[in-house]
Design a protein around this nucleic acid. Structure first.
Length: 717
DNA sequence: TGGGTCAGTCTTTTT
DNA sequence: GACTGACCCA
């Protein structure tokens, strides 16, 4: 037995790792060594002979987490992790469905729709049923369908009295029928199908229960109802379900996550009490004190108090900027100062509530010449050129794939317009065949020639792909479809797109299929299940910019949390209910606990949002942090009690240095108008001759005035 | 058919 | 302020 395995674990970690062969819930606070516990647990089970690689099922949410678990495990002991069932919920479900496709009613080569593809499938469905997408917005239909699937409910089990819901249920049924016809499954369907596979087939379920004696789950607080039901099928009463999670870091309720699953697990599996990992190895004491004080205000927690053996460290820096521009400037100046002190840029992060906040930061960073990296945005397999190429590849395997056909039927433009496509859709509906078959059968008509050309192209792609390997097929499809020529002619961003297409060929070249004869299907599946990295060039030392959501699981020496304003963080959409506000607070808790040594909280007294200025007050979350933990960096901060504040403050205090000077006026300036009386400038736009001021008049409300006409009616107060 | 313009929208997001 | 989708004209 390798004693190194357990060396260095604290008492709680040790208790979790060496938990007997029965179910457990581990409440793992931020920075408490969660991943280490999970992987060491697996290694310990293997090393003590309680488990062999085949008897372990480990489930994560992201591919990144699954990979990390595999890497760490491989480093701990000599075991072939590739043979183990370690993966994401969706990846494991995909594996189950491919293995048992005969029992699921799916073709062996079924394709997976990502959310975008699901949405186009729904749009297409609405159109074919002649239902206005104004009354039934595709997004809402999609949400309804996914919501039902994630609750484990099929259309046939639903009923409603109001006509609207009735229609939604009909659409759900029709959507499923369309997917079945086309041999495609969406993300939620992967889960639901494999749940149904196991629940309807007792022998199969029993087989897996006997095999997977140990089921381990990461980020358990993020599981939805269906995922927990799926876990319960695989982990019966005699199996050991080992769930690790943190109810205080549950920030995905908006997409169906049920924190309640944690309490449910305790009851369902007769677990007396959770194991609490409360010692934090990441943050300085002051940062943890702030996090603890904040999160204590939430109700219904399982309860946990982080502590550290490290000292209190620095106070939390608070900066109250007069504008979003000054906020960004402050952050960048501070980043540069820290960099001069020897901190790595890549060990500093700016976190924000919404992506829109990154723009002004980028602007200032570019000016200051500071390298930065933004997380978020398009990922590799979501790029249009990649999607186009893969659509041709899909057509080469299965021309009946309507989604793929519609995507590229006119890419590159070949004179097949909306009208022709519509005719095609009508024909396919009337004849009950796929679009491809309808296109093959299309005889006369003005555009029939164009259609015939397309049919011929796809036929040729199919034939020529047949004898080729995966990489050769990808390459051929890109060339022969005309995609390469199209992007070569595109001067704007063709070059980058061509580089991405070459990267796709590279990816295909290095792809290792499980079953060589299914290489293309496996490649397409991987492209759907793993959309690739969120950002490029990881090498350079660069400041990290991301949303708080994206930061979960990461840590940095210095963290800036920007935009701490009512309406932004907490977001105004969460004001309606206490639950939403509590999730915002957990989000703030996640943000705070990302920091190791240095934490900055900033807010702005004026901010451009949706193209207009707003004057928000400081976030309540700042006030929920004990004042003695804070060091105020700007002069204008006044700790006003929350109750006495209104949601809009008079910007009269906005400092003289406010940048927005127009025609001698600046935002925040008090003035008097000959007709409207006293007021305050709250916004300005334009320059030179053409300047408009938005003024909040005490007696006449808010007005926009054109300075060309109003200049001589205004006097400064 | 396809390019252009204009109104409407605008948290968070992995699979 | 920037992106998407709808609509209009050549």
């Amino acid at each position: 037995m390798n004693n190194d395995l357990l060396a260095g674990l604290n008492a709680e970690q040790l208790s979790a790792v060496t938990w007997p062969a029965k179910s457990a819930l581990v409440l793992a606070g931020a920075g408490s060594g969660k991943t280490r516990v999970l992987t060491t647990r697996i290694a310990w089970l293997l090393q003590t002979g309680q488990a062999n690689p085949a008897s372990i099922l480990a489930v994560t949410f992201t591919n990144k987490a699954a990979r990390e678990m595999q890497t760490r495990l491989a480093a701990m002991m000599p075991v072939n992790v590739k043979t183990m069932w370690i993966g994401t919920f969706h990846g494991l479900c995909n594996r189950l469905l491919r293995m048992h496709y005969r029992d699921t009613g799916l073709p062996q080569t079924f394709q997976i729709l990502d959310s975008g593809e699901q949405q186009s499938a729904i749009k297409r469905l609405l159109k074919s049923l002649d239902i206005s997408d104004e009354k039934f917005p595709p997004k809402q239909v999609q949400q309804f369908i996914n919501g039902q699937k994630e609750a484990g409910v099929r259309a046939g089990q639903l009923s409603a009295h109001d006509p609207y819901t009735k229609k939604l249920i009909e659409l759900y049924a029709a959507y499923d029928a369309q997917c079945n016809r086309e041999g495609v499954v969406d993300f939620a369907e992967l889960l639901l199908r494999s749940y149904e596979l196991l629940s309807r087939n007792a022998a199969l379920c029993e087989h897996y229960r006997a095999r997977f004696r140990f089921v381990l789950v990461d980020e358990f607080q993020d599981t939805n109802r269906l995922q927990y039901a799926w876990l319960k099928l695989l982990a019966g009463p005699d199996n050991a379900l080992f769930a690790v999670g943190d109810d205080d870091q549950s920030i995905y309720a908006f997409r169906g996550a049920e924190v309640g699953n944690m309490r449910a697990l305790l009851a369902d599996y007769g677990v007396a009490a959770p194991v609490r990992l409360e010692q934090n190895y990441r943050s300085a004491g002051t940062i943890l004190d702030a996090a603890n004080a904040l999160i204590e205000r939430n109700d219904g927690r399982l309860g946990k108090q982080l502590w550290t053996a490290a000292g209190p460290g620095d106070k939390i820096r608070l900066f109250d900027a007069y504008s979003d521009g000054e906020e960004a400037q402050f952050i960048v100046d501070e980043v540069k100062a820290l960099k001069r002190d020897g901190w790595d840029l890549s060990d500093m992060a700016v976190l924000y509530r919404s992506n829109a906040q990154s723009r002004i930061l980028e602007h200032v960073l570019v000016q200051a010449g500071v390298a930065y990296r933004i997380y978020g945005g398009l990922r590799f397999f979501e790029r249009q050129e990649i999607k186009h190429a893969l659509a041709y590849l899909r057509l080469a395997i299965n021309p009946d794939d309507d989604n793929a056909l519609l995507r590229v039927i006119n890419v590159p433009a070949r004179g097949i317009g909306a009208r022709t496509v519509e005719n095609l859709q009508t024909a396919s509906r009337e004849q009950g065949v796929s679009l491809w078959q309808a296109a093959c059968g299309a005889g006369g008509g003005r555009t029939a020639g164009k259609l015939a050309e397309f049919v011929l192209l796809v036929e040729k792609l199919r034939q020529r792909c047949e004898p080729l390997n995966l990489a050769e097929q990808v390459s051929l499809v890109i060339d022969d479809s005309g995609l390469r020529a199209m992007y070569e002619a595109d001067k704007k961003d063709g070059e980058e797109r061509l580089a991405n297409l070459d990267e796709l060929i590279n990816a295909a070249t290095g792809f290792m299929p499980q079953e060589p004869q299914l290489a293309v299907v496996e490649f397409l599946t991987q492209a759907s299940l793993e959309a690739g990295d969120h950002q490029a060039d990881a090498g350079e030392d660069a400041l990290q910019l991301m949303t708080v959501h994206a930061a979960k699981g990461l840590e940095f020496n210095a963290v800036f949390v920007g935009g701490l304003e009512e309406g932004l963080f907490p977001h105004e959409n969460s004001f309606n209910d206490a639950k939403g506000l509590e999730e915002e607070r957990r989000l703030m808790y996640v943000a705070i606990t990302r920091a190791r040594q240095r934490l900055y909280l900033t807010n702005a007294q004026s901010r451009m949002l949706h193209g207009q200025s707003r004057y928000p007050i400081r976030s309540r979350f700042v006030d929920e942090i004990p004042a003695e933990l804070l060091q105020v960096l700007s002069a204008t901060v006044k700790a006003a009690p929350v109750a006495s504040r209104t949601s809009w403050v008079e910007p009269a205090f906005v400092q003289q240095k406010a940048a927005a000077r127009q025609g001698g006026w600046r935002v925040g300036q008090s003035l008097s108008h000959t007709k409207f009386g006293a007021g305050v400038v709250i916004n300005a736009e334009g320059a030179g001759e053409d300047v408009r001021l938005q003024i909040n008049f005490a007696e006449h409300g808010i007005k926009w005035l054109d300075l060309r006409y109003a200049a001589d009616k205004l006097t400064s107060l």
